[in-house]
């Protein structure tokens, strides 16, 4: 199964995009959570504050489906 991870600028260098400037194509097994997939590709889930999929915020236990695009949001705390 393939999913696409997309990351904003502060996470981008950690994600190592390969599809375009923002996106990395990841082959994984169906049924795995985003947290598990992140670990599989060597990206510490602690760098991700939350994710969103199809315009809705999800937590890292979300299980993506074939072809879905998952946006990873790093912590943003400044003011």
């Amino acid at each position: 199964m393939v999913v696409f991870f997309r990351a904003g600028s502060e996470l981008r260098h950690k994600l190592q995009p390969d599809v375009d400037f923002y996106t990395r194509r990841v082959e994984t097994q169906a049924g795995k959570s985003v947290k598990d997939i992140l670990r599989d590709i060597g990206l510490d889930p602690a760098f991700v504050a939350f994710i969103y999929v199809e315009g809705k915020v999800k937590n890292l236990d979300y299980v993506p489906t074939e072809g879905q695009s998952v946006t990873l949001q790093p912590p943003v705390s400044g003011g």
């Binding site: 904003g8 600028s9 790093p74 943003v76 705390s77 400044g78 003011g79």
Partner: peptide, 10 residues
């Protein structure tokens, strides 16, 4: 709520 970091804000 508002927050910023690097190039991103929300």
């Amino acid at each position: 709520y508002g927050a910023v970091c690097g190039w991103q804000g929300m």
